Simulated scan of single mutants.
Amino acid sequence: MSANGIIQETELIDAATRWLGERMPDTWIVERAKRDPINVAEPGVDDLIELRAPNGTYSTVAVEARAAMEPRDVDRLLTGIARSLRALAGYVPLLIVAPWLSGRTRELLAGQNVNYLDLTGNALLKLDNPAVFIQSDGAARNPNPEPRKPASIRGPRAARLIRLLVDVRPPYGVTEIASAADVNPGYVSRLLDALDRDALITRGRRGVVDTVDVPALLRAWASDYDVFKRELVTTYVAPAGAATALAKLADTSMRTTVTGSFAAVRLAPVAAPSLLAIYCEDPRTTAEDLGLLPADDGANVTLLRPFDDVVWERVTVSDGVSFAAASQVAVDCLTGNGRMPAEGEAVLGWMAENEDQWRQASLPARPLR
């Protein structure tokens, strides 16, 4: 390691030690450990921090300092240092220290029971003896980002790509994805790189997508997407009720597909739906066909102009009414208000347990529709 690297590592560990010490009672001692009674340093950790309670009990925490850590690095960590520590001493608490850790990185670390601390105040530390629990939120965005411009998962092209990754089982390569989603291969490559860095997908030889973390990918998409806050949304009242308007969709003259609560309840009931959300090509004609009245307040029907033709892909039809694909329903609910995010999570749970019912086995030779 270069001299600069050693200085940065030392500064990170010193800062973490101070941060923890400031948050413990005055009677506790928090310091860099002066001893290594169980040879924790052998697996290659950077240092040890000791937390000592006034009754004499103490815990030695193995510290791994990183100048940067991306979500994809978590897997490498767990197959290296963390595994070695657990093999060496049953369970030795591991603390990752970095200048900043993204929300996805923190989520993955917490999911593997790995403690973390960044210098903006994002922290999670759980110790059994002495009992310690610290959790805090710091910066949501990197205060010192790298010059690299991250790929956005906002917009129609990203929607087509994400829907394909979710709706079709891998493996598939860049060229196959680009053809099936009708997206430029260069854009596909850049977006896959970004998704791989965030551990939302895994890639094998020659960049082929091997696995997709479906719930995490749809949640990430939802954070950059909001179907109910666009200018192409109009709201109405169905005088006879939203359920009656739903039944009339079978006879409408326009192409439509139902999303949101009324689509979610068919897959994973949470509560009786009240707001009917419909993608439609012509809101005015659809409203006339369904007998809807314009309304800003008290609306029970929302008509949505499609942001892209992807909303028509992989729909299902029941009693003459078209319902959006499970992936589209999930993300639309996740970005809604009220109980809709809970409905979206319920759909994600249904998707995990019923993959054979909604996920295609392979890509077709032509663009998906």
Score class of each variant (00 low, 15 high):
residue 93 P to M: 09
residue 93 P to R: 08
residue 93 P to K: 11
residue 93 P to I: 08
residue 94 L to D: 04
residue 94 L to M: 06
residue 94 L to W: 07
residue 94 L to V: 06
residue 94 L to K: 08
residue 95 L to G: 06
residue 95 L to Y: 08
residue 97 V to W: 11
residue 97 V to R: 12
residue 97 V to E: 10
residue 97 V to P: 08
residue 97 V to K: 12
residue 97 V to G: 11
residue 97 V to I: 13
residue 98 A to S: 15
residue 99 P to Y: 09
residue 99 P to S: 11
residue 99 P to R: 14
residue 99 P to A: 13
residue 99 P to H: 10
residue 100 W to T: 10
residue 100 W to K: 12
residue 100 W to V: 11
residue 101 L to V: 04
residue 101 L to E: 00
residue 101 L to D: 02
residue 101 L to S: 02
residue 101 L to Y: 02
residue 101 L to H: 01
residue 102 S to E: 05
residue 102 S to G: 15
residue 102 S to H: 06
residue 102 S to N: 06
residue 103 G to S: 11
residue 103 G to Q: 08
residue 103 G to L: 04
residue 104 R to S: 07
residue 105 T to G: 10
residue 105 T to H: 06
residue 105 T to V: 11
residue 106 R to A: 04
residue 106 R to V: 03
residue 106 R to N: 03
residue 107 E to M: 13
residue 107 E to K: 15
residue 107 E to A: 14
residue 108 L to N: 12
residue 109 L to D: 00
residue 109 L to K: 09
residue 109 L to W: 05
residue 110 A to D: 06
residue 110 A to T: 08
residue 110 A to E: 10
residue 110 A to K: 15
residue 110 A to R: 15
residue 111 G to Q: 09
residue 111 G to F: 09
residue 111 G to V: 11
residue 112 Q to S: 14
residue 112 Q to W: 08
residue 112 Q to Y: 05
residue 112 Q to E: 13
residue 113 N to M: 07
residue 113 N to H: 12
residue 113 N to G: 02
residue 113 N to Q: 13
residue 114 V to N: 00
residue 114 V to Y: 04
residue 115 N to H: 13
residue 115 N to V: 08
residue 115 N to Y: 06
residue 115 N to R: 08
residue 116 Y to W: 12
residue 117 L to R: 05
residue 117 L to H: 03
residue 118 D to S: 10
residue 118 D to I: 13
residue 118 D to G: 11
residue 119 L to S: 05
residue 119 L to M: 15
residue 119 L to K: 03
residue 119 L to Q: 13
residue 120 T to G: 04
residue 120 T to Q: 03
residue 120 T to C: 07
residue 120 T to N: 05
residue 121 G to I: 09
residue 121 G to T: 06
residue 122 N to S: 02
residue 122 N to L: 03
residue 122 N to W: 00
residue 122 N to C: 00
residue 123 A to H: 00
residue 123 A to T: 15
residue 123 A to K: 02
residue 124 L to K: 10
residue 124 L to V: 08
residue 124 L to R: 15
residue 124 L to F: 11
residue 124 L to N: 01
residue 125 L to M: 14
residue 125 L to R: 05
residue 125 L to Q: 01
residue 125 L to W: 13
residue 125 L to T: 02
residue 126 K to W: 02
residue 126 K to S: 12
residue 126 K to C: 00
residue 126 K to F: 05
residue 127 L to M: 11
residue 127 L to K: 00
residue 127 L to A: 06
residue 128 D to C: 04
residue 128 D to S: 14
residue 129 N to D: 10
residue 129 N to W: 01
residue 129 N to A: 13
residue 129 N to T: 14
residue 130 P to F: 11
residue 130 P to M: 11
residue 130 P to H: 09
residue 130 P to T: 05
residue 131 A to D: 01
residue 131 A to N: 02
